[in-house]
Nucleic acid binder design. Structure first.
Lengths: 208, 208, 208, 208
DNA sequence: GCTTAACCGAGACGGTACGTCCCGTCTTGTT
DNA sequence: AACAAGACGGGACGTACCGTCTCGGTTAAGC
């Protein structure tokens, strides 16, 4: 998750301050809230964190990398709730996701790094590793639980399975993001219900 | 679409060059392709357009507004093809849309201005007016055509109708954008078919 | 005194507004008082004069030429007073000259155009014609009156005469300017008396 | 002479480059020779000095302050020659001073900053400190030497003494400047002799 | 408990782009 | 033909950050 080489602690010398990392990431989120991506400066983050600019550059390559790390942590709090039915479970995750996206430190930073990633493969890979793939667990988990409950047929073909996971992920994440950030309409419970209904009927009908 | 007041030709003075507008927007797209959003500078755009920086600032408030206008034009070429069935029509639009998003001048700029819009209401409104609402016509048209064909029930409640249009729009646009820009996987014909199938079953199943 | 060609009124067409000239020069002096040379802009002068920028440029080549003309008029009010003795006459002129130099429209502009003239022969010539030579009359007049009174010997050699006029002029003008603008001390009556005494003794002693 | 506080090396951080100062002042004089005051730009000076524009602005508040410092150094080479008599000594200094004023880097800049100083008290003070007062030593020295030689009476009243020093200084500097820059006539040996004669007779005659 | 190498803060450095101001010129339509 | 209005290409301004580079001064591991 960090850009520093993990095995760089070979030789002696003063070790890096662990507190600095946390302070910097927290300062980054704070600055994202107050200033937004475009007006956030690394000098300002360093000052907020009570750290020299050099310390910051020693650990991250630039603004993009720093913000990816700062934002990634936000999504780790997503949980797949057990509400008894697939529909209710999906609804729960959708609402949680929408709630995170409503926070300014998330929306300010997330779209910006995605934009930057359109021209920077390393950054896109970092985003995928740090954020996207980490949350795909929710789709996999949800499907497994639904299969246990008998709500979905047991999948056999692993290729088709992967494709379906990816599709569902794109649909859910993409739709919620678009609703929240572009349409700028609230993703409230009523909307989550309508969306979930559409998604579930789609899944059941188009499967085989 | 421009920042100048359309009816501002009240008083005397040399009129603004119409050619400059086109040159600037074209230069902006060219620079987006070559440099991407973050390295695009207004000074460079002005030079490419053979125009003074002041001329550019006289017409647009900043980089965001300029890029919104430059990108908006790209989506005007979207057409609802008549392929005989709703499924095929949707597939066609999805592929067209994905093709535009695959062009660097679109993806470089679009996500960046959306990111900026999270902190700038005027910009979000401009995006909605210039880009989003303009393309909602496709959903409305498509539904009308499907109703004519008898593929979809005739909608009665206008409120529900609007909500459905918005939902479909969020699902289609959001999913394609996420697939293309975040997952960075090709939105090819096979994928478009799978996605369309999911969407249509969802629509039919969740309608009543 | 103007830069327009005097014989340019050959052909027909609308004649130039005479009022504009006066308005522009007055506006220039006003702007000199408020803003000083370096912050004075021709656009601002034009606005103050209620005139278009083009009108201004049609008549003067630039800021330097305009300010020379605007400032030159200030010195025309200098008079050689008849106070009964050469010493008193000189004192009177010195005090008048110091009073004009104390006015912001004079000091702001005069030194600036002199500075510019160090690299612009045409401008220096214009200054000499419009300002300097015009006021040498005072020295010539003063000497003639003193000779009539018998306070100075009748000069014979015209070359020496010219040289002396120039020297006196440099001494008087240079000293008053330096006292007023560089030393920034008041050129009051006491000082004028001391200076005049020095000058007169110098003249009487070094004459033959 | 610099704008930085001399005792500002209290805290840590990289110290300012001493070489940069010299390079900037030299580049300023070079640019004054080539371009003159009004066409001199700080960006160009920075480039010539091989220095970033920010480095320049970190040390000087603007063009005026920079040029004062650059020009001030030129006058430090003035020396009071010992030519055996007061008249010859004055002549020597006058000629040296005229020679410096004839150099384009001096005349281009000096009058311009004096012009600016008419509206800027801080700048005037800086000029007085950096240039004017520093050279008054010549008058004081010259008088002392003349008193030793018995060419001038020993002064008693210190107030009158100061006033006389100031008056002589204004006369000498003002006259030479006016001759050189406004009248634009050469201040050659013949002229210097005539002027010195006038000044000395004036001093001897008006003293008591 | 002494070395010693990497860390840290501070801040100056060369550089790039910003958005603004003014320049002097050039269209406009009007007088 | 001169005029008011104002857009135009151009150039410099002074500022803000960038990412790098010295500084002097900690600080902990390993001798």
């Amino acid at each position: 998750m960090q850009s520093r080489t993990p095995a760089s602690r070979a030789a002696g010398g003063r070790p890096r301050s662990a507190a600095a990392d946390a302070a910097i990431l927290a300062a980054t989120r704070e600055a994202l809230v107050e200033l937004g991506w475009s007006k956030l400066t690394l000098g300002d983050v360093a000052t907020r964190a009570g750290v020299a600019k050099t310390t910051l550059y020693r650990r991250w390559a630039g603004k993009n990398e720093l913000v990816v790390d700062a934002v990634a942590e936000l999504f780790d709090e997503l949980r797949l709730p057990d509400r008894g039915s697939l529909a209710a479970d999906i609804e729960g995750v959708v609402l949680q996701f929408a709630a995170i996206l409503a926070r300014p430190e998330a929306k300010s930073g997330l779209m910006a790094v995605i934009a930057e990633a359109t021209r920077d493969d390393a950054l896109r890979e970092r985003i995928r590793t740090s954020i996207v793939d980490r949350q795909k667990r929710l789709v996999v988990e949800g499907r497994a639980r639904a299969q246990t409950r008998g709500e979905l047929p047991t999948e056999l073909d692993p290729a088709t399975g992967t494709a379906t996971v990816d599709l569902i992920f794109d649909v859910v994440v993409g739709t919620v993001v678009h609703r929240t950030l572009v349409s700028a309409e609230p993703a409230d419970e009523a909307w989550a219900q309508a969306f979930t209904a559409l998604l579930l009927h789609g899944l059941r009908g188009s499967a085989p």
